[in-house]
């Protein structure tokens, strides 16, 4: 088969002019193999998020350099796995954690969906608090370390969440000691 440069119709090898527009065949006309047309279409019900070859490729990188992930215009090599990206869509458009906890359904991907197909909010909120977007088993998490905390991520919010507990414990113990000390002082008086 050859492709007509004028109307882009596929034509039989044996024809010298295009069957649609009558344009004469040139030696430079592109060829195509129509016997494989059907196989041009691919389909899969497996989760592409888990199977993404790009993600696996990036997961193999030992020390991801922040620069590697900068998207240069029109450059596909900058395709970044969601986990390794500074601004995943999940994190990206989400309100800060404090607000979000009250509105767990505010994930952009699930807007406008048929409500009947929406999962209960609780599991969703668990899921979307996880920066990996899944409740993955530890071995499923890519070995590569995460890149430095990006600027646009609500960093303060996520760090607050993790650093608050030790602070609270230390503060609580200090307060208890102080109160005990005061009581002893008062009793002594």
């Amino acid at each position: 088969m050859w492709i007509c440069t004028k109307c882009e119709t596929f034509n039989e090898e044996t024809s010298l002019v295009c069957c649609v527009c009558g344009n004469r065949r040139e030696n430079t006309d592109a060829k195509c193999d129509t016997t494989v047309l059907e196989s041009n279409f691919k389909s899969s019900m497996e989760d592409a998020d888990q199977n993404s070859s790009k993600k696996q490729e990036y997961a193999r990188i030992k020390k991801p350099d922040r620069e590697t992930y900068k998207i240069k215009a029109g450059q596909d090599s900058a395709d970044i796995p969601k986990e390794l990206r500074p601004d995943t869509p999940v994190v990206q458009e989400k309100p800060p954690v404090e607000e979000k906890q009250n509105v767990p359904e505010q994930k952009p991907q699930v807007q406008n969906e048929d409500i009947s197909l929406m999962p209960e909010p609780q599991p969703f909120s668990d899921k979307y608090d996880n920066p990996f977007g899944h409740s993955k088993k530890p071995e499923e998490i890519p070995a590569a370390p995460l890149p430095a905390q990006p600027q646009n991520v609500p960093a303060a919010a996520s760090q607050n969440k993790t650093n608050l507990l030790p602070l609270l414990i230390v503060g609580g113990v200090a307060a208890a000691v102080l109160i005990a000390f005061l009581i002893i002082m008062l009793l002594d008086m």
Partner: peptide, 20 residues
């Protein structure tokens, strides 16, 4: 549809699932 391509359709290339 892919099998019907005669040059001027924009046929489906890939149908897949990503998460939900």
């Amino acid at each position: 549809i892919a099998a019907s391509q005669a040059g001027n359709l924009v046929p489906p290339l890939e149908l897949f699932r990503n998460e939900s």
